[in-house]
Each structure stands twice: as C-alpha cells, then as structure tokens.
Amino acid sequence: MIPSQFDYVRVSTVDEAVAALAEHGEDAKILAGGHSLLPIMKLRLAVPTVLIDISGAQELNYVRVDGDQVAIGAGTRHHDLEKSEVAQAEVPLLPHVASRVGDPQVRHRGTLGGTVAHCDPASDLPTALLALGATVVVAGPNGRREIPITAFFLGFFETAMEEGELIVELRVPRTGSAGWGYEKFTRRENDWPIVAAAAVHLPDGSVGVALANMGGVVLRAEAVEAALAEGKSIEEAAALAAEGTSPSSDMHADVEYRSHLARLLTQRALKVAAGETEASTAESTAA
C-alpha cells in the first residue's frame, strides 16, 4: 500500500517550516520521522496534499539541561532519547519509556515531537510526558508559545495546536534520582499498550501518574494523584485509577478488563517508583 500523491517540501529551519505551513495551509502536514504519519497515509486514512519535511532541521535535535528543566528538541529520535546521558541522569523515566516504543527500527526514525503531535491515546512517550507534567513549546506564525501538556491533548488525534503551528520543544522537570515506574501491558513486546501506567516522583513532592489507552487521549490519573497527596496508601490510591477514564472496548480488552489493568498497572508502577518492587518484565524467571 502506498500513500496518495502529495507535494514534498524540505526545510532546514523552524522558520522555514512555519513559513511553509503558512503557505500551504491546512492540507499540509509536518513530516519528521514519519513513523506516525506515513503508516496512516499508506492506509489512506490521512491524505495531506503537502508534506513539509523538517527532519533536516538540526536545531530540533538536542537534549539539554535548562535551569530546573530538561529541554528536548522535538526532532529528537526515540533512539537518541533512549541513549541520551543527560536524559538518563536528569529524567530517567523518559529514556526508559523511549526504549519501550515499538521496535529498534521504529525508534531509529520516530521523533518525540512527532509522537506528541500525533496524539494517539495508546502512545508511550505522551503518557510519560503527561505524568511528568511537561510543557509543549510550539512555534507558529505569531512566534512561540508554551502549552502545558495537561491542556495539549484535547481528543482522539486532536491537540491544542492551531493551524500553522508545529512542536519545537518538550520541557520536563529534572527528576534526577527520584523514583519512577512504567508498566506497559501488551500482547507482544513491541505492540501498542493495551493499557500502560507511568508514575514519577516530581520535584515538588507530588507524584505524577498517567495512563495510556484508557480514553480518547492519554490521561492523567487525577484521582490517584489526589489520594496520594492526601497520604493514602499505594493500594488505596491505585484502586481509583479507572476513575474519570473512558476506556474503549476492543478485541484486546473490554471496559472491565481495561479498568482492572489500569488499577493493577498503576499500583505496580507506583510500587516500583516507591522502590518497593522491581519492574515487571516479560522475561522469564522460570526454572
């Protein structure tokens, strides 16, 4: 299967990308790694008439400390995030989650900005960014603006970006050696999660908890966070994980099972983050 025809524009800076978006209007799409966009274009579920390729924009490839935050260029590929020593030291949840995306070939191409812009409710890295309370920096015709990630994912494949804007940076708090956990539940290792839970201890003393695939967008587990803030136990808090969610029912899981998984994985992620248990892995411990 192959995409419908489109025009291709290669840009090498963010300014050029913004200009190209302005020129080509709403049917133009930004192409970075292409691993969210091209698959749906091949199935002709997306039919943009212009692709603006920003993969040559070197200014978008970085992971660096910026004050009390880590700033990550939107063009950073999952593989580079996974291997980034800065990320490993300052916000280890992210490189770990990057290592769990898809398979090596996908991680070699896919970018952080791309996966955030794509806004898939089952996506790993957006879940982690949500737990971290990240900030999304977008550039557009009126310059740059910052959007809290809690306000970014609006609905199924719908974000707070406006026409003519693209993501240029993600900013997350430096969590350093604070605890974190990521529990991803799949059929096969490299599948999208049926449900995933991210938990991370944040510098302000709170615990951020987010869920993948429990609704039309990745979700913050607010009831769990509130319960923890009130001093409830991990078990008590995790029992609230499905509150406020709207999971779908599909061939992998119905609503009841997804809700169960949300509670179970949240509890496990919180325990790992608290240093109580080891992360679950598929690897056998059998005799």
Binding site: P39, L43, R187, R188, E189, N190, D191, M251, A282
Partner: peptide, 14 residues
Amino acid sequence: TSTFADYPFVSATE
C-alpha cells in the same frame, strides 16, 4: 485483524 498491526503474528519475544 486485517493487518500485521492487528493480527498478533507470533514474534521472537513471545
């Protein structure tokens, strides 16, 4: 289950 994304063809990790 009409693509390999939906049909869980057994892989090396399983």
